[in-house]
Nucleic acid binder design. Structure first.
Lengths: 163, 163
DNA sequence: CAAAATCATATTGCGCGCAATTTAATTTTA
DNA sequence: TAAAATTAAATTGCGCGCAATATGATTTTG
């Protein structure tokens, strides 16, 4: 396939690649919005937003975490989590209390309502999976690819911070 | 591979699938944040946010669009775009003017500064592509998969609206 | 042990993103 | 053609998401 068009292709490929990587960013951006819009009608009956829902999911995997530990799992800082957790507490899903051993920390624990929500989450997850229209294998592959890319992006950001 | 464990696997696979689809949503959510964080230091020197940047990109592909046309391309409504476009105008990247032929519409056009930004965007796109650590083929595949999933999610939302 | 540094969380300010509403212009239809 | 319906933008209110800052609590270190 190496022919006299090679020279032209070195001119053509870069713009193509540039357009594509633009599309990847936008594809991720659009997919995130589409997923959020799919979750909304499923979470609205519970008065929950998607970020609140994933905060609950983190607690289902381990109750009694600090705000910092939750933030590490979710990739969010206290500026986002503090008000979010206050709303979850006001809605009766969690409780917050200063750690007696270290008063700087706030321990977040599930209420009965917060634990009960985990059962309803099963149906929500099924709905979302169905809405994606993906096979289990496709979901696994997509998830893995995205996680790998995210790790590389975060590693790059960490390197830039060090520099 | 069909053996006496089949029965157990029908119990095991659903939770596995449920956990995975959760991870897909979160993987998309995390990737969107990671991409946004990667863009931020590249766009900050221009005083642009990522949503503002993709609005400009849309205009580079066709100037003089209405707010509604921009919204259709980006998947955003006037509640998001109106203030965003005002900020882009205040920053000198675009101009907004009511359409003489239909005063309901606002036509958005690029300024010289807005057009000049397109040249700097080439370097930004290269940086992002490098930061993802993906090959061109991997970027294409990921983008295509995400676009296909997003289309299915949006089709489902449209069906739900009709119902 | 006291001052300084560090740490965890909360707060403030700003820009999305979206639902709901408002305003003004255009089109439909009666 | 006048009233009703539709349309395009803008506005309001609320919840993220993040940078910058503030407030206490704990640890370090001099």
């Amino acid at each position: 396939m190496v022919d006299k068009r090679d020279e032209a292709e070195t001119d053509i490929i870069p713009p193509g690649m540039l357009a594509l990587d633009q599309q990847l960013c936008f594809a991720v951006y659009s997919a995130a919005h589409a997923l959020n819009r799919t979750y909304k009608p499923l979470l609205d009956p519970y008065g929950l937003t998607y970020p609140q829902y994933i905060a609950l999911m983190t607690l289902w995997e381990g109750d009694g975490r600090t705000v910092k530990a939750l933030g590490a799992k979710l990739g969010l800082d206290s500026g986002t989590l503090s008000p979010l957790l206050k709303r979850l507490e006001a809605a009766g899903y969690i409780m917050r209390a200063r750690d007696k051993a270290d008063e700087r920390q706030v321990l977040v624990t599930l209420t009965d309502k917060g634990r009960a929500m985990q059962r309803d989450a099963v149906a929500i997850r099924m709905e979302i999976g169905k809405a994606t229209g993906c096979t289990l294998e496709a979901l696994q592959a997509l998830t893995g690819d995205l996680q790998a890319m995210t790790e590389r992006l975060e590693a790059g950001a960490a390197r830039d911070d060090a520099a």
